[in-house]
């Protein structure tokens, strides 16, 4: 079939461009619009890809865990945390994966991190208890006056206490605001009723905030560590701790961390051998 050179319908637009027969209208129709459409498609696809990435990583990590590829699962959960998915469930799953990999210290570390966000999660409490049962050191429990007196703050996370206090705060100040203009009797009783729970909620939130931000607990990550009298390798070994022991972290000097036990035994340990529960990685 002979092709007529002037039959434009069959000629490629690029050829037309090269032939400089293109008009402004042609440019818009044939180049600009497809470019915009492609760009939008790319943006939408990219955006969807970004949303799905977290989910995909989560599902892949869970799949790896269920298939026994615990290192892949650990990498997946860490990737999620780096992307900002710092939920209690992700920390819990990571703790499980480390437990399966027989890294008891890291398992307890991530369970403890999860517990800050999910204090009432029954699975978490069971697994943490089970992991702590596997540890070798009998470390006495520290008696904390705050947690004994305000026992309910152990069962609520910081966000829940914040929401409770914020709600009471708005209601109480709202009623007080109304009383600046009109003073119906119900506002008096309203203030009296909300004042006590507002005070308790405020105090609880403050204490929980202090407890979470000032948490100096750390977990021993190595199988066995020597606790030295000073921050030097040739110092006297005071005592030994084993993987998973939850201790109190005081300060760091060079590569050494000063740690303390609830019964006030103190000593220095190589910094890498312990990790704080509320550390830079967590926050």
């Amino acid at each position: 079939m002979a092709i007529s050179f002037h039959d434009r319908s069959l000629i490629s637009p690029l050829l037309i461009l090269s032939k400089k027969h293109v008009t402004h209208q042609y440019f818009i129709q044939m180049v600009f619009i497809p470019f915009i459409v492609c760009s939008l498609l790319f943006i939408v696809t990219y955006a969807q890809g970004q949303d799905q990435t977290g989910e995909e990583i989560f599902f892949k990590a869970n799949l790896a865990y269920n298939e026994g590829r615990y290192q892949d699962a650990i990498e997946g959960y860490h990737q999620l945390i780096r992307k900002g998915y710092r939920s209690g469930q992700v920390y819990f799953n990571l703790g499980n994966a480390y437990f399966r990999e027989e890294e008891l210290g890291k398992a307890i570390l991530f369970y403890e991190r999860a517990k800050i966000l999910l204090p009432r999660d029954a699975d978490l409490n069971f697994n943490l208890g089970y992991a702590l049962d596997q540890t070798q050191d009998a470390i006495p429990k520290s008696s904390d006056f705050i947690t004994q007196t305000f026992f309910w703050i152990n069962n609520l996370n910081l966000g829940e206490l914040f929401l409770g206090f914020a709600l009471l705060n708005i209601v109480l100040w709202g009623i007080l605001l109304i009383r600046l203009f009109i003073k119906p009797e119900w506002t008096y009783y309203g203030v009296m009723i909300f004042l006590i729970p507002w005070s308790i909620a405020g105090l609880s939130f403050g204490l929980k905030w202090y407890q979470v931000t000032m948490d100096d607990r750390a977990v021993v990550l190595q199988e066995q560590v020597n606790i030295m009298a000073g921050p030097h390798s040739d110092d006297t070994v005071l005592f030994q701790l084993h993987e998973g022991a939850v201790i109190l972290h005081e300060r760091v000097e060079d590569e050494w961390a000063l740690i303390r036990l609830p019964d006030n035994k103190r000593g220095w340990v190589k910094n890498g051998a312990v990790e704080k529960i509320i550390g830079a990685a967590y926050s």
């Binding site: 269920n66 469930q89 914040f162």
Partner: peptide
């Protein structure tokens, strides 16, 4: 130990001020 959490809700960001 008990198994991992698999619900997609696990990825929702907790409020932790």
């Amino acid at each position: 130990i008990l198994p991992v959490h698999t619900s997609i809700k696990a990825l929702s960001q907790p409020l932790s001020p």
